[in-house]
Lab assay of single mutants.
Amino acid sequence: MSIQHFRVALIPFFAAFCLPVFAHPETLVKVKDAEDQLGARVGYIELDLNSGKILESFRPEERFPMMSTFKVLLCGAVLSRVDAGQEQLGRRIHYSQNDLVEYSPVTEKHLTDGMTVRELCSAAITMSDNTAANLLLTTIGGPKELTAFLHNMGDHVTRLDRWEPELNEAIPNDERDTTMPAAMATTLRKLLTGELLTLASRQQLIDWMEADKVAGPLLRSALPAGWFIADKSGAGERGSRGIIAALGPDGKPSRIVVIYTTGSQATMDERNRQIAEIGASLIKHW
Rank of each mutant, 00 (worst) to 15 (best):
Y103A: 10
T158A: 06
T178D: 03
L150G: 09
A133L: 00
G236Y: 02
A280G: 11
M180P: 03
E87T: 14
D177R: 01
D269S: 15
D113W: 06
E175T: 12
L49G: 05
M184W: 01
R220W: 02
D83L: 03
R92A: 06
W286A: 02
R159E: 13
G251M: 12
M184T: 02
D83N: 06
G90F: 14
L89M: 14
D36H: 09
Y95W: 13
V42G: 00
N168A: 09
I256Y: 04
A34L: 11
T193Q: 13
V42K: 00
L136P: 01
R118D: 10
L205N: 00
R159K: 10
L146Y: 08
I256M: 13
R159D: 03
E62Q: 06
V82P: 01
T193Y: 10
T193K: 14
L247I: 12
E102L: 08
A34S: 12
R189N: 07
S57D: 07
E108R: 15
A276S: 11
I229Q: 01
A246L: 09
V101I: 12
K30G: 05
P217T: 13
V82G: 06
V31S: 04
S254A: 09
V42I: 07
V31W: 00
I275H: 02
L111V: 10
F149D: 14
S240R: 00
I229G: 00
T112S: 11
A40D: 05
N272E: 12
A230T: 01
R91W: 04
M115N: 03
L197D: 00
I243S: 02
R241V: 04
T267H: 09
P217W: 14
G43S: 09
A211E: 13
P165E: 09
L150I: 13
I259P: 00
K284C: 07
D212L: 02
E61T: 11
Q86T: 14
F228M: 05
I275R: 01
L135H: 04
D48K: 03
G248I: 01
F149Y: 09
M209T: 00
S68W: 01
I278F: 05
R81L: 08
R220F: 03
L89N: 05
I93Q: 05
S240H: 06
I244Y: 01
T178V: 05
D129M: 01
A148Q: 10
E102D: 08
E108D: 14
M180T: 06
L120S: 04
G141Q: 13
K252G: 10
G251F: 09
E169D: 09
G142Q: 05
T69E: 01
Q204Y: 08
A280P: 02
L160Y: 01
R220H: 04
E61I: 10
G242H: 02
V258R: 00
A77C: 07
A200Y: 09
C121S: 04
N130T: 03
E102Q: 06
N98R: 09
L160I: 12
E108Y: 15
E175G: 11
R238L: 12
S233V: 01
